[in-house]
Amino acid sequence: MTVRIGLCSVAHLHADSYAACLNNLDDAELVGVTESEERVAEGREKADEYGVDYFDPDALLAEVDGVVVCSTNADHLAWVRRAAHAGVDVLCEKPLAPSVEAAHEMVDLCHRADVHLGVAMPLRFSQPARNAKTAVENGVLGDICFLSGTNRGQMPGSWFVDEAESGGGAVMDHSVHIVDIVRWITGEDVREVYAETETRFNDIPVEDVNLLSMTLTDGTEFVLDGSWSKPDEWDFWGDATLRLVGTEGVVSIDCFDQKIKQTRDTGDPGIRSVFWGSNPDEGLVADFVEAVAEDRPPLKTGADAVNDVAVVEAAYESANASESVDVEASEITSATN
């Protein structure tokens, strides 16, 4: 069976990677691209680049078994609503939504339409993250006492720094990746957040620095730096790391540590790092294609992702109030979903 997949919007930087992954899968076909009225020219350009047709939204949804939503954060709800009404499974770019209210609405829409909603959290398919999860499950670390993570990258610009389109800055863009793998590895949710944010590295209207100090539901402390702190001239876009300290041992992972440095004095001179490890996006896309074929939820469900959005919402509330904020129990979903 060949699973037919479409791309709903190509506004997100990850669209190129997902298109390449779909084109490389034997059991999937990238059927085409569609875009919002404001971005039709961009959509047509990307369709040509990917070697597929450009469709109007309703026409694409009528041709596919599933779609990957790569729009601005603010447009996630509209695209998911459209796909749900068409009875098409969805893999939505992270974060699921800029607000808990919108995230819940997306989950409810898909539930009522009996379609599966997944969220693009590729670090669950990173081999270092999977090794850490296996170590925790096998009791290698004993009881986990402390977690420290980073997701520091370059400032992406474009709509990412327009709060109306993104919902926020670096907290919105980067926090969810490491929060998700901590919840996935430990089986615990985030119960309390204290956040400090600032704009220090770029002349932009949203925060590019953030430090979150969190407490999990079992009392474990967890700190995260998810800043846009890498300069444009940096040799690699950023990092995704996690250190787990237990009573019996310590595990440190860097999801993008498998790279080599390349020095050039011609063309585009300078030093850059080339990643040679396994591509987590490939696992993410393959899981979605398999989920559509088997009529099952993807590994990361929309219902589970509501929790990540609740952490982000609490972080912004904390930063504004300069005090710790509880992540409301009513907004928590099971970390094992």
Rank of each mutant, 00 (worst) to 15 (best):
R243A: 15
D225W: 12
G246E: 10
P205V: 12
A335E: 09
P205H: 14
L60A: 06
S227F: 03
H76A: 06
G246F: 13
D75S: 14
A97V: 01
D75Y: 11
A15G: 12
P280R: 04
L77D: 04
A120L: 03
V3F: 01
V309I: 02
V107I: 01
M121E: 06
D58G: 04
R82P: 00
K94N: 09
V292K: 03
I144Y: 02
H76G: 01
G139L: 11
A286V: 03
H174Y: 10
A83F: 03
Y194S: 13
N210W: 08
I178F: 11
R200A: 13
D180W: 09
A291L: 11
H14S: 13
E192D: 14
H85K: 14
V311P: 02
V64L: 13
A47F: 12
N307C: 11
A319K: 01
V311Q: 02
F288H: 02
D268L: 11
M155P: 00
G142F: 03
A41C: 04
V40N: 12
I253G: 02
V119I: 15
D143W: 10
A310P: 01
D225H: 15
A315V: 07
F256T: 05
W276D: 10
E192P: 08
S17V: 10
V223M: 14
V245Y: 12
R272L: 08
E313M: 01
V115S: 01
P205D: 12
E45D: 05
V136G: 04
L141S: 09
D287Y: 04
H174C: 14
G142M: 12
A129Y: 03
I144F: 00
N138Y: 08
H85V: 09
E317F: 02
R264K: 09
L96W: 03
K259N: 04
V136W: 06
V136I: 10
E196S: 10
T199D: 10
V209Y: 02
D108Y: 06
K94Y: 11
V3G: 00
H14M: 12
E45Y: 06
T186R: 08
E42N: 14
V31D: 06
L284I: 07
A62F: 15
E221D: 13
D143C: 08
R272I: 15
C92K: 05
L141C: 05
P156Q: 08
A303G: 03
A102Q: 03
V40Y: 11
L77G: 00
E42H: 10
V161S: 06
K133F: 08
A303T: 02
S36F: 07
I204A: 14
E29W: 09
V179W: 09
S318H: 05
A195F: 09
I185S: 07
M172D: 00
E101I: 01
A291N: 05
I181A: 06
M155Y: 11
V40S: 09
V325Q: 03
S175D: 11
A315P: 15
R4P: 08
L211M: 15
I253A: 12
C8D: 09
A303D: 02
Y194Q: 13
A329S: 15
V274W: 14
T333A: 02
A314R: 07
G51N: 04
A19Q: 13
E105Q: 15
V251C: 11
P128I: 05
V52I: 09
T150G: 01
L141M: 07
V193K: 02
P156S: 08
S334G: 10
F288T: 01
G142H: 10
D65Y: 05
